[in-house]
Design a protein around this nucleic acid. Structure first.
Lengths: 219, 219
DNA sequence: GTCTATACATCGATAGAC
DNA sequence: GTCTATCGATGTATAGAC
């Protein structure tokens, strides 16, 4: 029984490796079994089918990717300090699981409704709407610390700059050969550059953006 | 012969649809044949194997994704106008081919050396190093129009904010249900928000970023 | 060129010995 | 529980009629 649980996690870990690397379609039960050091039939003994095994793995990774998101949100009222912490923590976490973001984006796109429900369930934990980041941004706007920004777009910008380099690493490193995305030096430099851009981009004591040439902006 | 060419592109188009949607592993010759309205055997007559068919499709999409990148680079010396054009053009192009970015990122990660060579060949067209954007940024820094920024990181930030919402659309729209990424209204709003963040973030007449609390910054 | 029929390989899944 | 052997389905690829 205890041995059974050990086997189960052993297989689950191997399956996680293979699924994250090759995706659901690219992975085979044979390879998972081989990497777990067991026979193919044993996978079915513990998980019945490839679909069920995949579901277990996927659910686990949704927890990892979304569930612990809240942990990364710093507890400080200083918006600049908040951003600095968040960017640093978030990038560190992403780089610690470099295959996860790409896997998530691709598989969720394929997954359809089933994956959708699982994510909704995980993300909407006690909140009805608005991300936990929303309130922090909105408060800073009210306090006059930062200029008025659209929270959704600002958060999207922040997340984009953190995630994309990890997801796009294979592409980026081919186009910019001097860049090693996951090297500690680059990551530190990158954190500073993101923070500098974002902070200057929203701080209230900077001049307001110029109106577009095509008109002073209606509505 | 002419009919042959028509058939070939007909199959190639169907194959493109299926490969972009399901990826190399998820796609089947059967589905491609069905969507092209022809028999399975005909695919092999024209393309010999699934691998060869995929290569043709992939090469075509590399052209689409990277090859025309140069076209999107505005011809203006006004850095603000430049950024405004680039962001707008780039987002429009991405949204016009919404499946392409996700496909590229995932497949390149899987593809390994073969895909790598193809991309290098396409991207390094007459340039030895540095992207076409580099020179624009560096000139603006020299002119004193914008504050000193690391070109690689700045470009990465710009690209990230444009690409990620398209790639992450399935995820984002589950977490932020009020957002419809590809709606014209959201896209226009988003372009403005990106530009405002970026422009305020780098304009030279803004105050310099505060030194980190941990020290005034060495080097 | 285009189809039907089929060969061949692989994969997911099960049966049954141990 | 864990293995070997094997089945059935599916997928790529080819042979051959038209």
């Amino acid at each position: 029984m205890n041995k059974g649980v050990a086997r189960e996690t052993q297989i689950l870990n191997a399956a996680t490796d293979v699924f994250l690397e090759k995706g659901k379609d690219g992975a085979t039960m044979q390879e998972i079994a081989a990497r777990a050091g067991v026979n193919k039939a044993l996978l079915h003994y513990y998980f019945r089918s490839k679909d069920r095994l995949y579901e277990k793995v996927f659910a686990r990774q949704v927890d990892e990717f979304f569930g612990r998101f809240a942990e990364l949100i710093p507890q400080t009222d200083d918006i600049r300090e908040f951003l600095e912490s968040f960017v640093s923590n978030y990038i560190d976490r992403l780089v610690a699981h470099p295959q996860l973001p790409g896997f998530m984006l691709w598989e969720i796109k394929q997954g359809g409704a089933t994956a959708g429900k699982l994510i909704r369930k995980k993300v909407f934990r006690g909140r009805k709407s608005g991300t936990p980041l929303d309130s922090v941004i909105q408060k800073a706007v009210r306090d006059g610390t930062i200029r008025p920004v659209d929270p959704a777009n600002f958060i999207l910008n922040l997340i984009s700059m953190c995630i994309f380099p990890v997801v796009g690493r294979p592409v980026i490193e081919k186009i910019l050969p001097e860049v090693r995305i996951t090297s500690p030096e680059f990551l530190e430099k990158r954190k500073k550059e993101i923070l500098a851009l974002v902070w200057n981009g929203i701080r209230a004591d900077a001049p307001p953006p110029e109106p577009a040439r095509s008109g002073p902006g209606r509505e």
